[in-house]
Amino acid sequence: MAKEIDDLHAQERTGTGKGAARHARRDGMVPGIVFGGEQDPLPINIPFNELFKRLKAGRFKSTLFNLKVDGHEDVRVICRDVQRDVVKDLPIHVDLMRLRRATRINLFIHVNVEGEEVSPGLKRGGVLNLVRPEVELVVTAGDIPDHITIDVSKLNIHDSVTISDVTLPAGAKPTIDRDFVIATLTAPSSLRSAGEDEEDEAAADEVPTTAGEEGAEKQE
């Protein structure tokens, strides 16, 4: 169940320093550096459009990439820093760290749902609310799960699924220590409206009589 890792394409950057970085930016590239592991740091340039698209997608710093640089072996990397222009807020430099297969990292893992077709709560018209479509887990870089699965086959209305109900892949654990909700099964709007009407009727029955009404009762 290993997760397919997205490729991140880059070019080796010739020259270092501010001059080379400015030249890269003029050419529509974002300069960066790849460090870590047992290799020397590698200066790179990443196409601005590709990097900007991935930044807009979100969670760039918690996503694992397969870095492809011509003339070098592919390597798994994770972002450690993105420097931005203080005025335009656009990326001007990126730091990537090489990962060994045994390295432990935090990643957001997709949540799959099974058992919806037999859930008694859903059959009654309940609504499944996926509170966390992704869950942040500590995993090893060499064995990243593609997803985790929650089972809602026995859920009734007002039931929920928490992280303690989920069988996690071997070696993975949540980044949050406490138990937390992943999904809830809420009542359909029709049942909620009926319940609200009943509460209103009960409240009306409990309205205390006024002083005038009490007097009338005594005279009778």
Score class of each variant (00 low, 15 high):
55 L>W: 00
97 M>H: 08
203 A>S: 12
160 S>K: 12
205 D>Y: 11
117 E>C: 01
118 V>Q: 15
86 V>A: 10
115 G>A: 08
138 V>R: 05
22 R>A: 09
47 P>C: 08
172 A>D: 04
162 T>K: 10
154 K>Y: 00
92 I>Y: 00
213 E>G: 05
177 D>S: 15
104 R>F: 04
142 G>A: 10
198 E>Q: 14
40 D>Y: 12
7 D>N: 15
152 V>S: 04
205 D>P: 01
97 M>Q: 10
150 I>T: 03
165 D>Y: 09
65 F>Q: 02
13 R>Q: 05
151 D>S: 08
5 I>Q: 05
88 K>V: 04
110 H>I: 01
184 T>D: 06
82 V>E: 04
3 K>R: 15
42 L>Y: 11
1 M>A: 15
198 E>T: 01
175 T>C: 15
181 V>I: 15
179 D>T: 13
52 F>M: 00
167 T>I: 14
56 K>T: 05
26 R>K: 13
66 N>I: 01
93 H>L: 04
107 L>A: 13
190 S>N: 14
196 E>G: 07
197 D>T: 05
201 E>P: 03
55 L>M: 05
136 E>C: 12
131 V>P: 03
48 F>M: 05
151 D>C: 06
69 V>H: 02
41 P>E: 03
216 A>N: 07
149 T>Y: 10
197 D>V: 04
215 G>C: 03
13 R>A: 05
176 I>V: 13
149 T>D: 09
57 A>N: 04
26 R>L: 13
34 V>E: 06
220 E>P: 03
185 L>N: 07
191 L>C: 11
188 P>G: 15
120 P>G: 03
67 L>T: 05
161 V>T: 11
11 Q>C: 03
9 H>G: 04
42 L>G: 11
21 A>E: 00
78 I>E: 02
11 Q>E: 10
30 V>S: 07
215 G>D: 05
22 R>S: 11
156 N>I: 09
126 G>N: 08
35 F>V: 06
16 T>Q: 11
207 V>H: 06
101 R>T: 00
92 I>T: 11
189 S>W: 14
40 D>F: 15
111 V>R: 07
219 Q>N: 07
175 T>N: 11
175 T>H: 08
54 R>E: 05
45 N>E: 06
216 A>I: 06
33 I>Q: 12
85 D>Q: 04
142 G>H: 08
200 D>Q: 15
